[in-house]
């Protein structure tokens, strides 16, 4: 029983962690609080379902394609919509308010389009839904594959951020945008890359969700909220913290759903959020 909760919680947590990683990159590097983040996730989820049902495309291949497609969409979104806001704000705090309002509008735009094309009903696919025994617990194979993809994508990103020249550039802009030009970094370009990378992660997370969960066109805001809760739990801009907090939230939700009541998972999420905000607003893992 406990082992089941742990394993299923870890699987859910993997997707959450990836979801939060994308949001924290967008906010940390591009300084854009993207309220339409969950809708971008949903687009990817719907695309995966349509590709699977309509074209018979394997979800794994879909996700491999969704990552670069998400990057391109993020790139375009930043260029068309966020770039002008960034330029207008000129490094002032105005960007936060402007980006929240603009992406709030984008949320309803995407939601409307999704409702129109997909309808209001819940969608899911049946892909690899036979059970596989993990430490004696039967887990659906699709969840394991989804978890594997999250681990690989999240792990690759963490290594890239920590070890590569590109990662160093992204971290530098996240930490000190004013100092970054001193070492030759084009801050605007790096912000665009950070936003695009975050969208790519949203797309991959959406793809993995679609592999094992039912979802509907109106559910995006819950993904945004959960990602936000995780980001704040982990500490804003803290990649390792987002991964750990994502995993923790998956475990807590699964525990609440199995031990108490499935209807209370969202309530539990926000209870944690409130406790963290009141007790450790700087995040659970922040030094100092």
């Amino acid at each position: 029983m406990l082992l089941t909760t742990l394993i299923l919680g870890a699987v859910l947590g993997g997707t959450y962690a990836l979801l939060a990683l994308g949001l924290t990159l967008q906010y940390g590097i591009a300084r854009i609080m993207n309220l339409a983040y969950g809708e971008l996730t949903l687009i990817a989820a719907f695309v995966l379902v349509w590709a699977f049902q309509g074209l018979g495309l394997s979800p794994i291949i879909s996700i491999l394609l969704l990552a670069p497609a998400g990057y391109l969409v993020g790139w375009a979104l930043y260029t068309v919509m966020m770039g002008p806001l960034v330029r207008r704000a000129g490094g002032s705090g105005r960007l936060e308010v402007d980006s929240i309002l603009a992406t709030f509008g984008l949320l309803f735009l995407i939601q409307g389009v999704l409702l129109l094309t997909a309808g209001p009903n819940f969608t899911s696919i049946s892909y690899l839904d036979r059970g596989v025994s993990v430490f004696g617990v039967s887990v659906a194979a699709n969840k394991l594959v989804a978890f594997g993809i999250c681990v690989v994508a999240g792990g690759a990103l963490v290594v890239a951020l920590a070890r590569t020249r590109w990662g160093l550039t992204l971290r530098a802009v996240a930490l000190s945008p004013v100092s970054a030009p001193l070492v030759g970094i084009d801050v605007n370009r790096t912000m665009r890359q950070g936003f695009a990378l975050g969208t790519a992660l949203a797309a991959v997370a959406g793809g993995t969700l679609a592999m094992y969960q039912t979802f509907s066109a109106t559910g995006g805001v819950v993904f945004t909220m959960k990602a936000l809760v995780i980001v704040i739990m982990g500490g804003v801009g803290n990649v390792g913290g987002a991964l750990a907090a994502g995993l923790a939230l998956g475990l807590v939700e699964t525990f609440v759903a199995t031990a108490i009541d499935p209807g209370l998972t969202l309530a539990a999420t926000f209870a944690i959020f409130l406790i963290v905000l009141l007790w450790r607003p700087q995040g659970l893992f922040r030094r100092r």
Binding site: L175, S179, P181, L182, G184
Partner: peptide, 28 residues
């Protein structure tokens, strides 16, 4: 030239207040 290209032309500025990346290691 935009500010970030100056360093490619061989001009390095140490501004007042130093302009380092305080949250990063010396190595970084």
């Amino acid at each position: 030239l935009p500010q970030h290209l100056l360093v490619e032309h061989g001009i390095a500025l140490v501004p007042e207040g130093r302009g380092i990346f305080p949250a990063m290691t010396v190595e970084d």
